[in-house]
Design a protein around this nucleic acid. Structure first.
Lengths: 219, 219
DNA sequence: AACATGGCAACTGTCAACAGTCTTGCTTCC
DNA sequence: GGAAGCAAGACTGTTGACAGTTGCCATGTT
């Protein structure tokens, strides 16, 4: 029933659970489903055309990511972020990315790393002419790349767990406002610092960048 | 069927899923289930006396925590840690706890915080005469408290997601070896630094502590 | 009108069964 | 004797149904 037309091209055959997970994550982080909304399993399973069991598995993952939280009677609802929580999220994010920058600075051969980072920068530059959503994607991609290039899987995993919350923060504050802090210049400084191997400077640049981002988002 | 004798006292009525989650987490982090072991749903569900559906939900959470990883065909197996991964885990841990220390230093009134931390220290001291496992629990409790006292839920959540990996690292390296790095003195220095509000020193103390811990575990 | 009460509807927790796929070992044919 | 094919087994993906609990609403009582 679920093995028909897909995978005609390189389309990885994705399980229904993963599809549901992606769909829900998107719907939540874009605000399509408003914060605080009570997620009723029976409704959602009908909407997504999947069974409750499969849906519940996806919900557990979202819960672990902090996008939805459990109420009294096992009731799950979309997490609501206030200003303080956004600051908290960005503080943790800063700590993680600062670690990433320091680890990259400690590498012997940073040539390849720098190359990848500059590629991500170019992508941001290209996206700066496009819509807000493209810019946000490019920005997140840059930071994800930063963490991924360290080769520290735990770091990348932790950052990934935070990504949903970051997206919610951006959505909560409004995309226009969020875009203020995504200048290619600021990010270039980070790359420059890493290129010269100046760990302190790179760490500082990131911390400041995140501080600024949080301040802009909170208003 | 599951609503019999429990909750006679303050025993929170825990869902089967949560029980299974706790049982599995314990079994994995103590090495009862060896790293690399392929977790067969049908077997486990029979062992734990729960249905596969319920078990699968618990497995998703463990997967998100990084205790089990997915293989080719959706096969789940207990994660195997090598030396590098242990170092990586402790690097992330250091970044998180360092943030915690800095946030605590930034508080106006640290009296209550210090009181709680000293209480955790005392507990460690008391446990130092007990078995290795008690000492490890007391140690983890201290660090968890450190993160919890910041009031930064995201930080605490991230640390919690790492806790399983930390336990696996300790188990992997052997409890005796791990216990070397749990002196009350070292932890006291951290608390002292926080008491004086010296963020740099507190951060430094934690980073060094974690560095030492990783080195002891690996080498 | 305020209040107790009995029953109904809404949800979540849990389970057993079906379907599809990959592996494996055996059989059969050249 | 070896290789292609075939059939059985082992697991995971997914589903629909049943059970228990909570909250609400209508109904009757004082």
């Amino acid at each position: 029933m679920a093995t028909e037309s897909m995978s005609l091209l390189g389309l990885e055959k994705t399980s229904l659970r993963q599809q549901a997970l992606a769909a829900l994550r998107r719907a939540i982080t874009t605000g399509e489903i408003a914060p605080g909304t009570h997620l009723v399993e029976t409704e959602l399973s009908e909407t997504l055309q999947i069974s409750r069991g499969t849906l519940r598995e996806a919900m557990r993952q979202l819960q672990q990511e902090g996008l939805i939280s459990a109420g009294p009677r096992g009731r799950l609802s979309v997490r609501h972020l206030d200003a303080k929580e956004i600051c908290d999220i960005f503080a943790v994010r800063a700590a993680l990315e600062s670690l990433a920058a320091r680890e990259l600075c400690a590498l012997e051969d940073r040539a390849q790393v720098i190359k990848e980072l500059r590629r991500a920068l170019e992508e941001m530059d290209r996206a700066s002419k496009d819509g807000l959503e493209e810019r946000i994607e490019a920005d997140l991609n840059f930071h994800r790349t930063l963490c991924g290039l360290t080769g520290n899987e735990t770091l990348l995993h932790s950052w990934g767990s935070l990504e949903g919350n970051i997206r919610m923060s951006i959505m909560f504050a409004g995309f226009e406002r969020a875009a203020q802090n995504m200048s290619v210049k600021r990010h270039g400084e980070i790359v420059d610092a890493i290129e010269t191997g100046d760990a302190a400077k790179a760490s500082e640049a990131i911390t400041e960048h995140m501080d600024g981002a949080a301040k802009v988002l909170v208003g």
